[in-house]
Computed example of a mutant assay.
Amino acid sequence: MMKKALLVIDVQVGMFQEGNVVYKGDSLLTNVKSLIFQAHSSETPIFYIQHNGPSGHPLEYRTSGWEIHPEIAPKNQDVIIQKTTPDSFFNTSLDDELKKHEIEHLVIAGIQTEACVDTTCRRAFSMDYKVTLASDSHSTWDSEDITAQQIINHHNRVLRWFADTSPSQDISFKN
């Protein structure tokens, strides 16, 4: 059986700013918390990916918006990986940490569907990880052309080329 890990991408305070909360932010947090609980209960490693934004960005490094959302705060055994691009692997220690833990299968959740979640799914696949995308545990915002729900639906369909897509309630971390 492949050893799994949960990746929680960019679920940071700045993504929940009043007046600009990520789409269905409350249900996203509920689903991610459920995945985290399941992972901790089965002693599955959790890797939090934390985006370091530039000055003035909602995720500006070392500001309150940069902090991981308090409802899903990491525990001591969890690993936090810092990144500066949509790719959670690019110029980070993620691959080394996963190898150190002998991880072969990644369960991915987080923000932003069409950027960091999409890029990380595709990159993980290209690096020979088995990938499961928690289809109800990633989110974004409306664009000028399409709604957040349409973006999420589209990516759940397209990313099936790179990942199994399942709702969080159907994902098991037990080996």
Rank of each mutant, 00 (worst) to 15 (best):
residue 138 H to W: 06
residue 90 F to W: 13
residue 105 H to K: 05
residue 112 Q to L: 13
residue 32 V to L: 13
residue 128 D to L: 13
residue 59 L to N: 05
residue 22 V to K: 05
residue 55 S to A: 14
residue 156 N to E: 10
residue 51 H to E: 09
residue 121 C to P: 04
residue 88 S to L: 02
residue 156 N to A: 09
residue 94 L to R: 00
residue 102 E to N: 15
residue 155 H to P: 08
residue 2 M to C: 07
residue 100 K to V: 03
residue 34 S to H: 08
residue 32 V to C: 13
residue 133 L to Y: 01
residue 98 L to V: 02
residue 174 K to R: 07
residue 130 K to N: 01
residue 167 P to G: 03
residue 169 Q to V: 08
residue 36 I to P: 00
residue 78 D to R: 04
residue 46 I to T: 12
residue 91 N to H: 12
residue 110 G to K: 06
residue 23 Y to S: 08
residue 165 T to H: 00
residue 78 D to P: 03
residue 147 T to S: 15
residue 70 P to I: 03
residue 89 F to W: 02
residue 156 N to F: 07
residue 47 F to Y: 09
residue 120 T to Q: 08
residue 74 P to K: 15
residue 86 P to W: 05
residue 136 D to T: 07
residue 65 G to H: 03
residue 159 L to N: 09
residue 159 L to W: 12
residue 78 D to V: 02
residue 137 S to A: 15
residue 174 K to T: 10
residue 143 S to A: 12
residue 118 D to H: 12
residue 67 E to D: 10
residue 134 A to Q: 04
residue 7 L to T: 01
residue 46 I to S: 11
residue 175 N to D: 13
residue 16 F to T: 05
residue 35 L to C: 02
residue 132 T to S: 03
residue 20 N to T: 07
residue 62 R to D: 08
residue 6 L to H: 01
residue 10 D to V: 02
residue 70 P to E: 06
residue 157 R to F: 10
residue 9 I to C: 09
residue 121 C to V: 15
residue 12 Q to A: 10
residue 158 V to L: 15
residue 118 D to T: 07
residue 141 W to V: 00
residue 154 H to R: 01
residue 1 M to I: 00
residue 34 S to G: 14
residue 25 G to V: 04
residue 127 M to H: 08
residue 175 N to L: 15
residue 169 Q to H: 05
residue 148 A to Q: 03
residue 103 I to C: 06
residue 53 G to T: 05
residue 124 A to D: 00
residue 115 A to M: 07
residue 154 H to P: 00
residue 58 P to D: 06
residue 2 M to Q: 05
residue 102 E to S: 15
residue 39 A to Y: 04
residue 10 D to I: 06
residue 79 V to H: 07
residue 30 T to R: 14
residue 86 P to L: 03
residue 145 D to N: 14
residue 42 S to N: 14
residue 112 Q to F: 12
residue 47 F to M: 03
residue 165 T to G: 15
residue 145 D to K: 09
residue 67 E to C: 11
residue 39 A to S: 13
residue 160 R to Y: 01
residue 159 L to S: 04
residue 46 I to A: 11
residue 129 Y to Q: 04
residue 63 T to R: 02
residue 77 Q to G: 06
residue 128 D to N: 13
residue 63 T to P: 06
residue 92 T to E: 08
residue 135 S to D: 10
residue 43 E to S: 15
residue 34 S to V: 01
residue 75 K to P: 00
residue 121 C to L: 04
residue 149 Q to N: 12
residue 79 V to I: 14
residue 125 F to G: 01
